[in-house]
Design a protein around this nucleic acid. Sequence first.
DNA 1: GTCCGTCGAATTGTCGACGATCTGTCAGAC
DNA 2: GTCTGACAGATCGTCGACAATTCGACGGAC
Lengths: 210, 210
Amino acid sequence: MAEDAHSTLTRRIRDAILTGEFVASQRLVEADLTARFGASRSAVRLALVNLANEGLVERLPNRGARVRSISVDEAVEIVEVRAGLEALCARKAAEQLGDEDAEELRALRDAIESAVRGGDLIGYSELIQELDRRIREYSEHVTAGRLLEQLHAQSARHQFRLAFAPGRAATSLAQHLAIIDAVLARDPDAAERATREHLGDVAAILAALG
Amino acid sequence: MAEDAHSTLTRRIRDAILTGEFVASQRLVEADLTARFGASRSAVRLALVNLANEGLVERLPNRGARVRSISVDEAVEIVEVRAGLEALCARKAAEQLGDEDAEELRALRDAIESAVRGGDLIGYSELIQELDRRIREYSEHVTAGRLLEQLHAQSARHQFRLAFAPGRAATSLAQHLAIIDAVLARDPDAAERATREHLGDVAAILAALG
DNA sequence: GTCCGTCGAATTGTCGACGATCTGTCAGAC
DNA sequence: GTCTGACAGATCGTCGACAATTCGACGGAC
């Protein structure tokens, strides 16, 4: 993932999709993107191919690209896969947590608790994402990490809907604290179990909402 | 995955990598591939980008592409991830196995047993791959299936070395039969457990061999 | 009113050429 | 003998033009 021109463009289009600037199923015409981002058509094409491989964009031969819309069934599938991968990462993280990592994790735990106490749902949601990222990092599992990053990007929109499900914050908080505590306790089994439990709930709620 | 020209080229280059025609770390110069496959440079470029996204090829900015070589550590990681995903698929397959699927699976079981009895290691290896493919199919889990396909391709070479580890066939056979029987018995827990057990062994052996 | 074939605009796919970047080599200074 | 800097070859990155395809609009036949 170098920082040259086409990577930047890929990132810019990805951001536009993730922030909802381009809505689901919207057509992404190469000429339009060329004008909008001031890049050449080759660069746009390359970016679209990359995003198609990431699963954010759908490319039909001779018919152009569009923002891929993810069905509820597929969102559930993604959460099921995430459960397996994040459980693996949580386990590894618990096994090999360094002392300074533990310090960071405790600080994050405090931040999460105070965000919830303050009723800051947006901040809470961001901190949870940070938590996921940290656990991936501590696990040092690059293969799982790479796949998880893709899956997160794909289901970003569904995540969002989930955050505001009524009464969700309380159980979500408890589950995340359980994950953190298991990792801090260096207990791999508990970390894996807590992660699975949490994502099992997420899958169930997603399926019910759909 | 349409069947137009550039997809075909992507597949052809992928096959060349998987069959060992292009060895690990070998440089893939665009001009050479252009001549060899009779395609234009754009097509070659696109194929390389796709393969890079699949993880089979490594592309360094301004320095070209080469066949990505996968370290033993990474091969172990891949098997760990596969364990999670294949366990999920085995579970789903066990949950929703159709009667005609069961029939096919029984036939495959017989074929596997007779391959081992006949000492046909190559045939056995192919049948095991077929088994994996079938379980993915029965699980109807497209997300997990797509990721597994990528991971299989990446670790194809290491798979190969594994098949000829001394005394491996016997335990491998027992483990695969256990997976098949659990799925046939429509027992999701057993199917997941048997799959994890098998891949846990594979990871251990890979790590030891490295 | 409906069906069918033709035509044209919009859009993607392909190509070859040009410019930019990297790598290795070689001469010269010290 | 070693180091430095310029040069040249190889290779990738970018661009604009042209060809191929799709899709909708239009008009005529029945």
